[in-house]
Design a protein around this nucleic acid. Structure first.
Lengths: 208, 208
DNA sequence: CGACCACTTGGCAGTGACTGCCAACCTGCG
DNA sequence: CGCAGGTTGGCAGTCACTGCCAAGTGGTCG
């Protein structure tokens, strides 16, 4: 394999060099859209990989080469989220407080969603399907792990020592994001997600 | 089925009435111990149900009748945790603040563990095995959902309306518990878990 | 242009968790 | 003893996922 990752998406910049890449991207998009359609139509658990592959016009084997797991068909590009998150948090000026920095990270990630409707669709699936919730939380844990050193540095605590402060702060940020999205989904996406996040943090850190 | 749950454990009170119940309990314990042993010996993912069943002297089919999933072999009695948690939180006097009430719940659950060594063993597995972390988090989510009405009542916020405060508070409590256990496991269980939990909360709600 | 190579694809068999079904079995009770 | 009612084990089947191997197809070099 010459190129690192197998299903390399080149980003928006420049034209895809080779025909292969273009074909790959096309197939990838086709699979992704088919999957999301079937998921919303009949539910995640009720949709089999075989069905997605059939309707997308590829073999199961190929589908698994593009997306390693069934979850990835919904999660989109989880690596990208992680990258954006850590970059946003790490990119805050040194004087910024931890909470502000984390807030910036949350905002950056939320800004990634294509449209409000699309995000609502995905979040609804994510929150209503038990098997998916677990996977999502696992990703969050990985993100927390990535963020931990950044936050520790910003807080001036020991580097992975016995001080749980940094970990607690990061985990709380994610917990609030979770609570916010849950409320957001329950309210059919009427409120502003960032607003809800702020209210969550206020409820935790502000009053009694 | 006469008795509600299939693998009913009668609690500590009274002698097991029938021979069947006694046999069931014995088999259950045997399976549980075999599983935990194999998990710690060779890892969770590397241990197959077939192996556990073989070494415990039951068929796979029977094993699945006692414990619906592989995870349940490690989680012990997750329903019990939930019950204890909600009871402890709900049982706090009316004047108690939310955070105190939640703290009491956490304390009650932590008190359930047989021994420090046993808990450390389980937590270590839980934290080091990706497939298990996800499942554990899912359980936490269920607990959060159970706790939510109690906390809403205590906070005097609307009952599942658009106010994310209660959700945020509950989620934060679990986030802190998570951070605390992570630190606890990393430190080989030297610190006191409840201490760590308090420090987590302090870090979140106290300083900047 | 044609051959060669890199890469991709599809099918097939296999693993591992988990479920439904059915026949054999055992316990508790009359 | 004999009859339920509950239990067990085996078997086949589903579903996500993986390795392996035989094609096919695009890109490139002589």
């Amino acid at each position: 394999m010459k190129q690192e990752a197998k299903a390399g998406r080149k980003g928006a910049a420049g034209g895809p060099a080779t025909l292969w890449d273009r074909t790959r991207q096309l197939a990838s998009r086709e699979i992704l859209e088919t999957a999301l359609r079937l998921f919303t139509e009949q539910g995640y658990d009720e949709t089999t990989i075989a069905q997605i592959a059939r309707e997308a016009g590829v073999s199961q084997r190929t589908l698994f080469r593009y997306f390693g797991t069934k979850e990835e068909l919904l999660g989109g590009d989880q690596d990208r989220f992680g990258r954006v998150l850590t970059e946003a948090v790490g990119g805050q000026p040194a004087g910024t407080g931890v909470w502000e920095a984390l807030r910036a990270g949350v905002a950056a990630v939320l800004a990634l969603h294509e449209s409000r409707a699309d995000a609502l669709e995905r979040f609804r699936l994510l929150h209503n399907t038990a098997s998916l919730r677990a996977g999502r939380l696992e990703k969050q844990l990985r993100f927390q792990e990535e963020l931990l050193p950044l936050v520790e540095e910003r807080m001036g605590t020991a580097r992975g020592g016995a001080d749980p402060s940094a970990r607690a702060v990061v985990a709380t940020a994610f917990a609030c994001l979770d609570a916010a999205t849950a409320t957001w989904v329950a309210g059919e996406g009427e409120d502003d997600l960032m607003d809800l996040y702020d209210r969550c943090l206020a409820a935790v850190r502000g009053g009694s």
